[in-house]
């Protein structure tokens, strides 16, 4: 299969999956009790039938479900994500405003977990079966096995409050109005705690996968050949095993991209990070259907794209092809 055809078929499949997700989400969220009008009434602490009726008309909730579904799908077909009546802005604007923060957070966390995870995995595999192997895997597990929100709060207390090294919450210093490099540094200092919290959570997973992958590749025929050729073990580990072992990790990490966004819900909540993970949870409890569906769609689309990219990378650099 040529690359163009492969890409076309993957994209088509991606679109089908996204379409199915869009439809499922539509019904799923409407199955939840209450609607946006109920939320507004609840928040206002005052309501009457006329108030609720006005809101439902405004939100278009008085129309039939098939009609609402039609409007929604028609919009999505033209990449129009709809309108949030609660926020009085288009969903694209609402999500677009929050997306960079999440990309920054998950990107940083992804790099941390992949780099640290692979490193720990390589170290553990090299010592497989010895006590230091268990120690490394266990150490990596500390951050995986402790509830993320607990780690998040603990880190705020220790590093922001007691030590005063970094700010505890937010995206940047509010009211400082930095620009240029000063702003970048300011954002970076706010990023430290959330990125580490989220990144360390996934480190254990990648360390485990890397270890297993290393051990598996170490047993493969082409490595035996390399050994037979008399290459030094350190060279074999570095050049042949680690390099080949990391590819499946990247692919698996691609599949995990969705998990990362899911993990961002908690991280963004505890660190007041203005990203789409938190937006998703807020939209859910506000029954802001349009925003919730938009966030789900954008997340899913990102995962689909990410998977296609990793597939491509994998095809371009298949370890077995190189080994042959």
């Amino acid at each position: 299969m040529g690359m163009a055809r492969f890409l076309a078929s993957r994209l088509l499949k991606g679109v089908v999956v996204l379409f199915a997700i869009a439809v499922l989400n539509f019904f799923l969220i409407r199955a939840a009790p209450g609607d946006p009008a109920a939320v507004m009434a609840g928040e206002a602490g005052a309501a009457d039938a006329q108030f609720l009726q006005q809101l439902r008309e405004q939100f278009g909730l008085d129309r039939s479900i098939p009609y609402q579904l039609g409007v929604y799908l028609k919009g999505y077909a033209t990449l129009d994500l709809g309108y949030s009546y609660r926020q009085q802005r288009s969903v694209a604007a609402v999500v677009g405003e929050r997306l960079p923060a999440t990309l920054l957070l998950t990107g940083a966390a992804f790099i941390i977990s992949l780099a640290l995870g692979s490193l720990l995995g390589i170290l553990a595999a090299a010592r497989a079966g010895r006590w230091s192997d268990s120690l490394i895997t266990t150490a990596a597990l500390v951050f995986y096995a402790t509830p993320l929100f607990w780690i998040a709060l603990m880190s705020q207390i220790v590093f922001a409050l007691k030590l005063g090294w970094v700010p505890n919450v937010g995206y940047e210093t509010i009211g400082a109005h930095y620009t240029g490099l000063a702003r970048a540094l300011d954002i970076a200092s706010h990023l430290v705690l959330p990125a580490l919290t989220l990144g360390l959570f996934f480190t254990a997973l990648y360390a485990r996968m890397m270890r297993a992958s290393m051990l598996e590749i170490a047993g493969a025929d082409f490595i035996k050949t390399a050994r037979a050729k008399g290459l030094r073990p350190s060279v074999i580990t570095r050049r042949h095993i680690a390099r080949n072992a990391i590819l499946p990790i990247v692919t698996l990490a691609g599949l995990q991209a969705g998990q990362l966004v899911g993990g961002a819900v908690l991280t963004e909540t505890v660190f007041a990070w203005p990203g789409i993970g938190r937006l998703m949870f807020e939209a859910l409890v506000q029954r802001d259907y349009a925003v919730l569906l938009g966030v789900f769609f954008v997340c899913s689309a990102m995962v689909v794209l990410f998977n296609i990219v990793t597939d491509l990378v994998y095809r371009v650099a298949d370890p077995r092809i190189e080994a042959a």
Partner: peptide, 22 residues
Amino acid sequence: DEVYYPFIPDAAARAVAYETGK
């Protein structure tokens, strides 16, 4: 001159934000 209203969703994090002077 100015009043800012920062939004912090978690109660424990809000307390820490006050303690750190934010």
